[in-house]
Design a protein around this nucleic acid. Sequence first.
DNA 1: TCACATGATTGGCA
DNA 2: TGCCAATCATGTGA
Length: 346
Amino acid sequence: MDDQPRLMHSSHGVGMAGHPGLAQHMQDGTGGADDEGRKQDIGNILQQIMTITDQSLDEAQARKHALNCHRMKPALFNVLCEIKEKTVLSIRGAQEEEPPDAQLMRLDNMLLAEGVSGPEKGGGSAAAAAAAAAAGGVGSDNSAEHSDYRAKLSQIRQIYHTELEKYEQACNEFTTHVMNLLREQSRTRPISPKEIERMVSIIHRKFSSIQMQLKQSTCEAVMILRSRFLDARRKRRNFNKQATEILNEYFYSHLSNPYPSEEAKEELAKKCSITVSQVSNWFGNKRIRYKKNIGKFQEEANMYAARTAANATSVSTHGSQANSPSTPNSAGGYSSPCYQSDRRIQ
DNA sequence: TCACATGATTGGCA
DNA sequence: TGCCAATCATGTGA
């Protein structure tokens, strides 16, 4: 608590242009016997200020010029620069040598992969396609969502580049300004070119840290967009009636072994306008649900059995025995809806 | 609004 | 790697 009075006391020797006691006098307003003397001091200072004339200013300029032009000045500045290099700057310089930032590299790579930085490749359509592929869906509104994703990604890209340009411009302007300032100051104080160079690199580092923040927030925006896009893909859409018919037809006509081969899956996928993985999902779900509640599916099984039988009659009448996913080729076993093959629902 | 249907996802297993 | 089983999340119809 007594720090302040002590500090004020210590300032007496140098306070207010070398006028002892003046600072304290002005602070605590103590008067008394010294008052007259202090007023005299202030009066003297004011008198000195008032007597500064154009002539004395010119004289000061002339002295400064003479000092600048002194033959020993360059040598003196060189020595001072060397001393600076050997002391403070050398220590600072050693600390400034940093390895390339791994985080920055990661951000750069990600922005490049997402099509935000680097050359524009269709506004990130590849990324959108990858996101769609990851979701594994091929909906009817796929292209609409794609274009929406592309539009938003392109918006992010545009904002990123605008901001980046702004930062680069500001960095260049500030660097030029500081360099000019230092060059100007180097006339009156020893500043080596190396020191200017170091200052420039400090400025660049500061600006690159700002750029990193920009890159980070851009990455976040892309991740949010991506997750929203993927969430949208996750939205379930029931297959159309025709597709369900085709899949059910295959399932019940292959009830003894409802495991379509890869070729059959591909063909079913083609016929139903869905993906192979959707066909696999459907069969997986169907098998498990059928097994869990055979009674419930009995009616459905009978219906498809009748339809298949009708189809078979029609086919045999026409003398054709096509063997395709929609034209069953195996014994159904509908009378007893349990599987007879080695791989069957138990 | 609710119950049920259904496509998708996930973890474990062979 | 494909399948099963459980579960989630959304669609659908009463």
